[in-house]
Computed example of a mutant assay.
Amino acid sequence: MKKQHIPEKMCPVCERPFSWRKKWEKNWHEVKYCSEKCRRNK
C-alpha cells in the first residue's frame, strides 16, 4: 500500500485519527480502536 493512499479511521474513545497498519491488513474492516489502551477503556 502506498503511503499517500493509507486509509484512516477515527477512534471512538480518544477521538483521534489513526492509520492503517500492516498488522491490520487482513482485518482492517473490524478494527475500531487505535490502541489496546483505548480498547480496554471503551
Rank of each mutant, 00 (worst) to 15 (best):
P7A: 09
K37C: 00
K9H: 06
E25A: 15
C11F: 03
K32R: 15
N27H: 10
S35H: 05
H5G: 07
C11E: 07
F18L: 08
K37R: 12
R21E: 14
K22H: 09
H5Y: 12
E36A: 13
H5P: 00
E25F: 04
R39T: 09
P12C: 01
K3P: 04
M10H: 02
C34G: 08
Q4T: 06
C34K: 07
C38R: 01
N41P: 00
M1W: 07
P7G: 05
W20L: 04
E36M: 12
K3N: 07
W28I: 14
W20N: 01
N27V: 09
R39W: 09
R21T: 15
C34Q: 02
N27I: 13
K22V: 12
W24L: 03
C14W: 09
C34Y: 03
K32Q: 14
K22D: 06
C11K: 07
K3Y: 05
K3C: 04
W24H: 11
Q4K: 02
C34R: 00
M10W: 11
R16M: 13
W28L: 10
K23F: 08
P12H: 06
E30V: 11
K42Q: 13
M10V: 15
V31L: 08
W20S: 02
E25L: 10
V31S: 00
E25P: 00
K32T: 15
M10Q: 14
C11M: 02
R39F: 13
R21Q: 15
K22Y: 10
K42M: 06
V31D: 00
E15G: 01
P12V: 06
